[in-house]
Amino acid sequence: MKTTTKRLLRRIDRKTVQLLLLAVVLFVVMIILKGDKFLRAKNIESMLFQLVEPGLFAMCIGLAYLSKGIDLSVVTIANLVGVVNGIMLRTCLAPDGSNVGMLLALCVVIAVGVGLTCGIINAFFISNIGIFPILVTLGTQNLFMGIAMMLTQGRAEGNFPQPLMDFGNAMVGPIPLLTLLFLLLYALMCVVVHRTPYGRKLQWMGSNSKVTWYTGINNRRITYVTYILSGLLAALAGLVIMARTNSAKADYGSTYVFQALLTCVLAGISPLGGTGKYYNLILSIITIQITSTGFNLLRISPLIRDSIFGILLVLSIFIDYVSQTQRTRRLNRAAIRQLQQAGEKEAVE
């Protein structure tokens, strides 16, 4: 009995417990401070709505992080999808709206195409040319935004057909349909990362790409799959933004990248690669959402909010780094102590 509990406890990740505690504490704090407003059904509903976009971006960056890379271009991929679809809808929609079904299907096709292309471009420069992911995706971030800017001349696209709006605002019982779909997709990605051979190889490559190379694992293919998946998820976020906000703009949601980085680091997915559990991401997404809604309810200026997020990011990376170096130092000391004890034993004998 005792051993089974122990075994079960060992299987539970420490980070999961920490995040769960953090989320609960924040939740309780919000109830104490602004309980009346915070617990209102409308507020909960809007929180569920809001977490979809940053959640998708965090899923993208989490994947890249696991491979010891980063994908800064995700938000601009989403905007590019929105803008291209917006222009397509504006020009092709029949005045009587008869072809709307076909055009919405076309939207999905365009999203997949754009996501795929952008992912391949990122992976090509990272893997085939060998440039640092942070430089590549910083560059493509501006490239994709530039294209979207050129297409729209900086204006917002909007007034999308009603069926898209209906889809974006649909509810399944008390839960928004989009949130439900997001959770399903997230669960699927958890399985991909944790249970498929690709997911294992992704984590191994992030932890030591030289070893995977010497093991005959195709690092290039892993890199391509990772950035393509990231691009596709980002493109999906583009569709979500269209459906939810009824607009598309080349420079929408510029703070999302940062928020996604923070979400991943908070979830323990280290930018140093290979470590961290993808399934913790959802707890971290919820935590960030509570904080961000909390700031709104407490009327804390968004300007201050950004700098608090910034401090949080640096702090979590710092804690991550310190705990890692501490661990190796402890290991080294233990090894030497063990050896010295063995030496003493020999001397006695």
Partner: peptide, 24 residues
């Protein structure tokens, strides 16, 4: 240490890394 072993990963990960495609 740098080419053969994933130090920060588990025994199971290391043992299975060359044959993971077959362990499904």
């Amino acid at each position: 240490l740098s080419e053969g072993l994933m130090l920060r990963r588990s025994l199971g990960d290391n043992f299975s890394s060359a044959v993971i495609d077959k362990l499904t």
